[in-house]
């Protein structure tokens, strides 16, 4: 098992009710696996929200295998101005 820290921003934070989560995942889990878990925890509140993923403060456009201790941020687009 690996342990990753999830940083929650904007809509993700409100959907999960947390600024930060620590989750244990199976070895070999990827960023898209984690996104599915996050979306399922949000009970539908993120269904119409696009999410971009950053691992250890670096934006990742490809599905990426996660390592123990990684910090993963989900970044939604925001409309307000």
């Amino acid at each position: 098992m690996i342990k990753v820290t999830i940083k929650c921003f904007s809509q993700v934070k409100y959907a999960l009710g947390e600024n930060e989560l620590v989750l244990e995942l199976e070895n070999g889990s990827t960023s898209s696996n984690l996104e599915k878990i996050i979306r399922s925890k949000a009970n539908g509140q993120l269904d119409d929200i696009s999410l971009r993923i950053a691992i250890n403060q670096h934006y990742e456009s490809e599905d990426t295998e996660l390592k123990d201790g990684d910090e993963v941020a989900f970044i939604p687009p925001v409309q307000g101005g």
Partner: peptide, 8 residues
């Protein structure tokens, strides 16, 4: 961009 208490 803005969302509630956050900005980008």
């Amino acid at each position: 961009g803005l969302y509630r208490f956050e900005g980008q």
